[in-house]
Design a protein around this nucleic acid. Structure first.
Lengths: 355, 355
DNA sequence: ATCGGGCGGGAAAGCGCTATCTCGTGCCGC
DNA sequence: GCGGCACGAGATAGCGCTTTCCCGCCCGAT
């Protein structure tokens, strides 16, 4: 067998039973002294138990506690892509907030596949998590939406709490993100800088987030009599490579008089800037670029990228709060979402246009 | 078949018991048909059980299974900072590989605090995870190292498996990362490009990874008669802002004839490039910069950053494999580590020097 | 015919906990 | 001075599962 330590050669973790025996008290007393209980226990016993636990290196078995208590201390988090800064920032927020409440977070990756997402929800339900946070964007016309709704409804009926980050049509708590408003503001700011001709790099048209951002952007333009021509709108993956490809296609097709391109998120924008550069142009000078999300790295690219700040970590935190809040009503959801409002950050990638 | 209708107003999830009753079989039979067992069960019964389970929307309670089986399907992952691309990429690898084995991963953040790390290990032990992956770098002279070792030893003695990513002095399985060799290769390549005068932006001196990278770099330089002067070595946080600050301080102190600065990781390098630029200089032209890790974004910054590629996701995968591999011996560890070897990637940030 | 033995269903004994309950103490009030 | 009562320790009944163990059944070997 494994070359274990020279000391105690147990092969199974100390149980509460062991602790109780060691301390010479009953199981019940041991339980009460170690894990908060309404009842008081004699200080002397209490200390004996604590000492015994320390001596034995006892750690309560969380699974057993969950079974006995009928409730777990787990929060399940679903993200599209962990390595994407957008999601990893949100995850950091969730994990951070969960830590404060001594909750454990388990994570899974949907890879932007709604069928997979459904399976994962199903699988994670097995943990009986206290809350479940779904952070990917919804898809318009998702064939699995009904099944997902059924699954989550069942989950909530059995005491769970599902929360969506970003808009959803499904009847669950949702932390709304100001995609539309943020994009509208961005459009207005760009217009204010003198831009009049626009193009956009968008994700799959079914992606709700993409849809909202485009809609908001168009709205903002419309308010000033400008518009986003359909033939200046290219669809590609919602990733860095998607941004690169989209931009390349746009350039090959000819950008005409386009002065600024709006990439639907920062990673796409970064890909787009590389594509522009690879085409021999200079982003910011020859063609302005704006992104969305304001992920940390956009401060370090050249030119610094104009973007719409989303407080990603805060969003993760608020999503958890919203889930945990027992009487989360419309008001608290509104408060939470106010806390995660967006702000346009103009940087060098969209210089003021000489008129 | 209609899904479990909302009419059933139960407030507690369906249990195996419910399924058994619904199917008209015993608990044992239900268990055997739903969760693989060595024993065969009559096909007809089996189908009845499956149908009942589907009808009731039954999902096995993982906690209960863990308690009954005495083993969980959880892997615990500790990272320093989830939002850092280095760690989020590793996490993505771990989560991906875990998914294939139907394992669930729970994540926690040490914030680079070894005391907190110790506490977290303790807390996560409560889940009785099958494996525990610690991915932050070790600290030289860490006062909590002994306690951590004790905790992990106890964990392994009770059937767990601890794995470190990156070198460690502790007696546990370790997926070694070629920090030293990678840095050495980088130094040699830079020398080959004509660089002769070096500076480095390093993390806290106690950080083992930082230490190894600097050591390797110095080694590489020494092999060609060059060296890294002590006064061109600045210590700061191992983060983007640390890189920025470090570079700023270096510039203020005067970089003398330095031609290239080696930032110990890419996020620091990105911060450094921004600092260089903010000082009115042009990275790559006025001062070359090299990083380490080759995180995805370095392709998109300007100038593109020279770095040492570490296959981060693969590292996460291999760490899990190494943990799961029952008879992981020296050979398999070596194989795993061979699979995660580094490669220097020269890009525009370190142009060939005209001689 | 008889018997041993595989086969597979069901009862039941746990797994490590929590929470209810039981019950012996010691103390207060009238 | 005695009943009532609050207090708190210990026994125990679960929690939702898995996994023996037991046992009736059927089949092939004798």
């Amino acid at each position: 067998m494994a070359e274990g330590g020279p000391q105690t050669r147990r092969s199974t973790p100390a149980t509460l039973h062991d602790v109780a025996r060691e301390a010479g008290v009953s199981l019940a007393t041991a339980s009460r002294s170690l894990n908060g209980s309404a009842r008081k226990v004699n200080e002397e016993y209490r200390e004996r138990v604590l000492a015994a636990a320390a001596k034995l290196g006892y750690t309560p078995n969380l699974s057993a506690q969950a079974v006995a208590r009928g409730t777990s201390t787990t929060v399940a988090l679903l993200v599209a892509d962990i390595a994407d800064p957008y999601f990893s920032s949100i995850a950091a927020g969730v994990v951070g907030a969960a830590g404060e409440d001594r909750l454990i977070v388990t994570m899974a990756e949907t890879k932007r596949d709604t069928e997979r997402e459904l399976e994962l929800v199903r699988a994670m339900r097995g943990q009986r998590p206290r809350v479940m946070i779904l952070s990917g964007s919804r898809n318009i016309g998702d064939p699995h939406a009904a099944a997902l709704e059924a699954e989550l409804t069942a989950y909530e009926q059995t005491g769970g709490r599902a929360v969506f980050i970003s808009e959803s049509d499904l009847p669950f708590r949702t932390l709304p993100l100001a995609n539309r408003a943020g994009a509208r503001d961005l459009a207005i700011e760009l217009h204010g800088l003198g831009y009049r001709t626009f193009a956009a790099l968008t994700g799959p048209e079914t992606l709700r987030t993409a849809h909202d951002r485009i809609a908001g952007f168009s709205e903002g333009l419309a308010a000033h009599g400008a518009r986003l021509p359909d033939d200046r709108l290219v669809r590609s993956a919602f990733t860095r490579d998607g941004g690169y490809d989209g931009m390349r296609r746009l350039l090959e097709a000819g950008i005409g008089d386009t002065t600024v391109v709006f990439a639907l998120n920062d990673v796409m924008a970064m890909g787009a800037m590389s594509a522009i550069r690879d085409a021999g142009l200079e982003p910011g000078r020859d063609l302005a670029v704006a992104g969305f999300d304001d992920i940390p790295t956009v401060r370090d690219v050249t030119p610094r990228l104009t973007s719409v700040r989303m407080p990603l970590e805060r969003i993760g935190e608020q999503a958890l709060r919203l889930a945990l809040d027992d009487e989360a009503d419309a008001a608290s959801a509104r408060a939470a979402s106010a806390d995660v409002s967006t702000e346009v950050v103009i940087r060098e990638s969209t210089p003021r246009l000489a008129s």
